[in-house]
Design a protein around this nucleic acid. Structure first.
Length: 464
DNA sequence: GGAACTCGCCAC
DNA sequence: AAACGTGGCGAGTTCC
């Protein structure tokens, strides 16, 4: 059992004011396009039907039917699928779930190399979009407005959560899913949606704790690029040039497959697997002309040439990089982690920069992650409260409608756009750091804007 | 018929 | 020695 509670008056007031500010956003709500929801649902149903019929024609399905008692497997049941694949067909599972059962997730099924099963994955994806998002929105809206809850009392680290519907996990990375789901979310008539995100806030807040000089340099020097440098090291490039083919993908792979997992406490073996998944190489030996293509051709050819011929080679390679990362690149960060873990073991609690105390049984990763995750979110919360206060004092037509951990989402009247943007920028990059003197890194905000009357799927970078 | 569990998958 | 942090939610399943 982990408990976290405010230790200072300011910390208490942050939650107090935050709850009220969130309630105002909840009451304001988010417009949804009901006509679109209805039409899109019919379209997706058709697609699902077509794919299901296609799948039911397959030998795979017919054999599956023979293996079950009533002759009709439920194609939504991963348990039935697992029994057929791993018990009846006796395929050796190469991936297991947390409980030790053979996995039927996307990666496991793709690894089977059964083309018919890919149809099943397509169906799974469409059903997720339909039930969780489109039907979820429809169910929660009243007169075209849904009112997602934003909770401040449910999360161990003192982040927020959202439900009914969850506004914090609407698809973004998968282009098709993103477009389908976000087209349903629209502004009020004559308004436009604006999203303001803190850039790299967790990395910056972590730096406020450990003060590692190399990390501070990466944060302050805008010409430097940590993820680019790691991509060079990981994929043995001469240099990273984002204008070259595939370089951005390699940078993304380094960021999401190595750097962030490392910060959360992952280790070289899992990171190596993440990385080869990102560049679409198999878990065994790398074959020529496979994986993603970049400046130098296929990534497999490049890695083989550099002596990385299989997953095991990659693991050994990443092991060296991990060691270098923590001992050479960020030694002060490493020292802080040890010191912080030692303090917890001695006193039995950790204190967040924002005035909260976290006690209970924690492991080392928890110990290091919680104060960063919590304090980073509190920066968003403080900004949210401040912005809400100004909106009410100045009686804006524009309103806050939601929040996603490090981002504020607004429904803006075009006439107020300039003032809204300037105000957000002032709060997040100037006022915030004045309130908390422990913030020693610059804060930066990025904005995305949708055209007037356009859906959330149509947002574009907005230069401040 | 509902509670509790597992799994898979979406976000930061 | 061990090894990725925080959530919500739908579907299937099992248990009571």
């Amino acid at each position: 059992m982990i408990t976290i509670h405010p230790k200072t008056k300011q910390a208490y007031q942050l939650l107090q004011a935050g709850t009220l500010a969130f309630a105002r956003a909840e009451r304001q709500g988010i417009s949804v396009n009901i006509d679109y929801l209805n039409k899109k649902k019919i379209g997706i149903d058709k697609k699902i039907n077509k794919l299901e019929n296609e799948f039911k024609e397959s030998k795979f399905y017919k054999r599956w039917c023979h293996s079950v008692k009533n002759g009709k497997p439920n194609i939504n049941s991963n348990l039935q699928l697992s029994r057929y694949i791993y018990d009846i067909k006796r395929i050796d599972p190469f991936k297991y779930t947390g409980k030790g059962n053979p996995s039927t997730d996307e990666e496991a099924l793709k690894g089977l190399n059964l083309p018919e099963v890919n149809t099943l994955l397509e169906i799974r994806k469409l059903k997720k979009i339909k039930t969780t998002y489109l039907e979820g929105f429809k169910k929660e809206q009243v007169d075209g407005i849904m009112h997602p809850f934003f909770n401040l009392h449910l999360v161990k680290t003192f982040r927020s959560s959202s439900d009914s519907p969850n506004f914090q996990n609407i698809p973004k990375r998968d282009k098709e899913a993103m477009t389908i789901c976000r087209k349903a979310i629209i502004p009020r008539k004559g308004h436009q949606l604006l999203e303001a995100d803190f850039s790299g806030i967790e990395v910056r807040i972590a730096a406020c704790y450990h003060k590692d000089s190399n990390m501070l340099k990466y944060i302050t020097d805008k010409t430097s690029d940590m993820h680019g440098d790691m991509a060079v090291q990981i994929f043995k490039l001469r240099k990273l040039d984002r204008s070259l083919k595939g370089h951005d993908t390699l940078r993304q792979a380094s960021k999401n497959g190595f750097v962030f997992p490392q910060f959360y406490g992952s280790y070289y073996k899992n990171c190596a697997i993440n990385l080869i998944n990102w560049v679409q190489l198999p878990h065994g030996e790398f074959k020529p002309d496979t994986g993603i293509e970049f400046e130098n051709g296929f990534i497999s050819n490049h890695l083989i040439k550099k002596g990385i011929k299989c997953l095991d080679d990659m693991i050994n390679h990443i092991k060296v990089i991990e060691n270098d990362f923590w001992s050479k690149r960020f030694p002060e960060y490493t020292a802080w982690k040890e010191m912080w873990w030692g303090l917890y073991q001695k006193y039995g609690y950790i204190d967040l920069k924002t005035g909260f105390r976290c006690s209970g049984v924690m492991n080392k990763n928890d110990c290091i992650n919680y104060p960063v995750q919590g304090a980073a979110f509190h920066c968003l919360l403080w900004s949210f409260i401040k912005l809400d206060e100004i909106i009410r004092n100045e009686n804006w037509n524009s309103k806050i409608i939601g929040q996603i951990h490090d981002a504020i989402i607004m429904d803006v009247h075009p006439d107020e756009l300039n003032h809204v943007v300037k105000t957000i920028k002032q709060i997040t990059t100037v006022e915030l750091a004045k309130t908390w003197d422990w913030i020693i890194t610059p804060m930066d905000i990025e904005m995305e804007l949708c055209p007037v009357n356009a859906s959330w799927a149509e947002k574009e970078k907005y230069k401040i």
